[in-house]
Amino acid sequence: MLSKLATIQLEQRLSKLIEQCSAVDAAVVATLDGYTCAMKQRSQQYPLERLATMGSTLMSLGDTITAELRLGTCDNIISENKNGIVAFMHIDDNLVLITLATQKNALGMLLSHSRRCAEEMKKVVV
């Protein structure tokens, strides 16, 4: 389990992500077994705890698929949808960052900001 300090730092980093990237509407950090560690969203409209659990499922599936196919570790899983995008990526072996954007053309921005955020978070939880 994360320390209280680390949790606060993750929350701060999520706030920064939402501030810096206007495309991001919500972001969650979850353990790989589906527990929420930190979450932020612009308006309280998404069930983020449920998203955390599903994110862990999807990330594990991604890991399983890439391992089966010997494609190396799974970096991200992107779900592009009619009304938005959800990106799932590893922070480290145990944590997953899930970010959500409702702008359809924001994939590049969402991925680059989220990736930077995940890398910085990795340093926090070491």
């Binding site: 077994d33 999807l58 594990s60």
Partner: peptide
């Protein structure tokens, strides 16, 4: 996946998908 300490059972890994 490895279980974080959030769950109660003493099993080390749990199926998530």
């Amino acid at each position: 996946v490895l279980m974080s300490s959030g769950a109660s059972a003493d099993k080390e890994r749990t199926t998530v998908a």
